[in-house]
């Protein structure tokens, strides 16, 4: 096993992407993810890859469209205001079923907002921010090691399902350094017979999202997409349950806020309160069944997130009324405090 190193979340993400076979990166600077393009600009030329600083996020995501359509493993990264600009391209990628990895190290909004980490883009990520009926797979790492592991997975999932996979982190995760064992994935080239590469000895390939003829073509394509998404829902859901076996109360939280919730769980356990943590790792597809089953066994569920209550909607859908759901949300880049969570859970008893 290789030795663990101390690295920043953003740099780990970039390194893991290169190790996962990402050969092309396009991006535009924005805090708090600037270490990703900086790392790529240093490493890609040395390792045979391509780093290009685009003139905007719109250009970057469309460069991704081109590279993906040409068959490459490709990534772009940004933070919240930049993701808003990328939505057009993401919709086109979804329409043309092009695989790629898109990173959002979220910061507070709306608008220019601030640069502190936030989780206020949950809706944008999980509901699709662009036009049309589409989904992206959304992976939410909770620590730096998981940033590495999920980045590798993201590329595999993208190619396997021909989908956009989003890594949804936040400013704190991107800036944080923790020991990490860098993955050494065995990257096998995925055949992409649909990619454009010059129609030598074959019928021409067309990468497109316009579907006008015959009359039901677009409907058929959408039905196909929905079938694909159903399949993904059945196959890629991931979550972590921590100290939930005998729990009376259940905290649901992801990413950075789940770290604080985890600390609160430990503090409460030390005081004899039976509480556990459920942490969705895939935000879409959301681990509905897993959460539903757990919620049946507890007296109350507390959702903790750094937004006004976005994941809360999925939690409510999952719990589906079998127990009461409470909420603690922090706004504009503020963090929940472990003590605060402890107090709330104690008030249940």
């Amino acid at each position: 096993m290789s030795k663990s190193v101390l690295m920043k979340g953003n740099e780990v993400l970039a390194e893991a992407a290169i190790r996962a076979g990402c050969t092309h990166y396009f991006g535009y600077p924005i805090t708090p993810q600037n270490e990703i393009p900086a790392y790529m600009s240093k490493e890609m030329p040395k390792r045979g890859g391509c780093f290009l600083q685009a003139e905007s996020e719109i250009a970057a995501i469309n460069m991704v469209f081109g590279a993906s359509g040409a068959g490459a493993r490709v990534m772009t990264s940004s933070s919240s205001p930049g993701l808003s600009l990328k939505q057009e391209g993401i919709s086109y990628l979804a329409g043309a079923e092009l695989p790629c990895v898109v990173v959002n190290m979220m910061r507070g909004g709306p608008g220019l907002g601030g640069i502190a980490g936030s989780q206020a883009d949950y809706f944008q990520a999980t509901r699709g921010g662009g036009n049309g009926d589409y989904r992206t797979i959304v992976l939410a790492p909770g620590n730096v090691q998981e940033i590495a592991d999920l980045t590798v997975q993201a590329f595999d999932l993208a190619d396997k399902y021909r989908m956009v996979v989003m890594i949804l982190g936040d400013g704190y995760l991107g800036q944080m350094s923790e020991p990490v064992i860098l993955p050494e994935p065995d990257v096998k080239p995925v055949p992409k017979p649909w990619a454009v590469s010059g129609a030598k000895g074959r019928e021409p390939n067309k990468v497109m999202s316009l579907r006008l003829t015959p009359d039901d073509y677009l409907e058929k394509h959408n039905i196909h997409l929905q079938e694909l998404y159903k399949k993904v829902e059945g196959e890629v859901t991931q979550s972590e349950a921590y100290m939930t076996d005998d729990a009376d109360y259940l905290i649901v939280s992801y990413g950075t806020s789940s770290r604080i919730a985890r600390k609160a769980v430990k503090m409460l356990r030390n005081e004899g309160v039976k509480v556990g943590l459920f942490r969705p790792v895939t935000l879409w597809p959301f681990p509905m069944k897993e959460l539903h089953d757990l919620s049946k066994k507890v007296k109350k569920v507390l959702t903790v997130e750094m937004s006004a209550g976005q994941m809360l909607e999925d939690v409510n859908i999952a719990v589906n009324g079998v127990t009461e759901v409470d909420f603690l949300g922090k706004l504009g880049g503020a963090l929940p405090e472990a003590n605060e969570i402890v107090k709330i859970v104690k008030s249940y008893g």
Partner: peptide
Amino acid sequence: MTGGQMAPTTMSDQITKTTPYGRNVQDV
């Protein structure tokens, strides 16, 4: 503001956070 990345007006060979080897005009 973002800490010194390449601008469209960055000079040829100028080193920035995203041109660590200097701006290569043949490439960018």
